[in-house]
Design a protein around this nucleic acid. Structure first.
Lengths: 160, 160
DNA sequence: TATTGTTATACTCTATAACTATA
DNA sequence: TATAGTTATAGAGTATAACAATA
């Protein structure tokens, strides 16, 4: 059977596609790296039935009891309307509570429940472990420099 | 990650929100930094009526004449179906052409038109200038380390 | 049978305007 | 009037299944 060996499908590495122009384009690399991290994170959080946004919100609420939704939206860098469904979900699952603020009855103070704190602890441990595994082989200095650079970029006002 | 041209907005400053747990969480910083870069990029590309995806596709086609859609999708790390509308748009604007491959009539070879190449050149110049401006003040070494780290992460088997 | 490009579809994230109830 | 949270909606990115034409 002269069947030409079903050539091993080219995964990732094979592309002889030149990205010469994009090589120095930070956004390009940032997106690709983020895709990998995001995919890994999604897998890691799946057993906890959390996504990146619900995970981030939960962690911030656990770390900042009494946080208000507007503060949380600001911290997460998302718009208020988009936070509502996230908080809805966490509340429905009884991981957090929405408590009226006596001094300002417009606002809600967010608190994690015991269940929420326990889930958060487990999720944080899993994420940390997975991330360490993902970064295995990269030099510590390189990672430190990368995070430092990204923190500086985070603070840029963004022109517009 | 769905990214409809986010508008640049000032983040940080206010929050006395503790992100102690997230501080070491790479995905968190990656997302925030990417948001800033993406917002800046969207602004930069607006005059050319391009988005990050159409820009990236155009650059890769200009740099790789005859590229096929499946190769391009692979290079851009997106699924084939999602590339179709991007190519449709570039073709409709007469920035590229879809040419049948004689030796494999299933495939299309993608070529940039003169208009496409000209637009690409201008867009690349603008993006480079804007990105340099965005990164102004960051040390060269830091940026180099960051890109090097991200390139390594890109290659990780994050998903299928 | 497998692959290229395509259609259809569904889900997630995002952005804006407008509403309500408070302040 | 201004703000906190909400609703509704629209746009953009992503992932999967299934199809026709071709290999």
């Amino acid at each position: 059977m002269a069947k030409p060996a079903p050539k091993a499908k080219p995964q990732s590495d094979v592309t002889h596609v030149s990205d010469a122009t994009l090589r120095r384009f930070l956004g390009y690399h940032m997106k690709r790296a983020f895709n990998v991290i995001q995919a890994d994170l999604a897998q890691t959080l799946k057993p906890f039935d959390l996504r990146m946004l619900t995970y981030t919100a939960l962690v911030l609420i656990v770390d900042n009891p009494g946080l208000r939704q507007s503060q949380l939206a600001d911290a997460m860098d998302i718009e208020r309307p988009n936070l509502v469904v996230i908080i809805d979900e966490l509340e429905r699952r009884e991981l957090i509570t929405r408590d009226r603020v006596p001094t300002d009855r417009r606002a809600y103070a967010l608190h994690a429940t015991l269940t929420g704190r326990q889930l958060c602890d487990k999720a944080v441990a899993a994420v940390t472990a997975h991330e360490n595994q993902l970064l295995e082989g990269l030099e510590e200095d390189m990672i430190a420099e990368m995070i430092a650079a990204m923190k500086q970029i985070e603070k840029r006002p963004g022109r517009g």
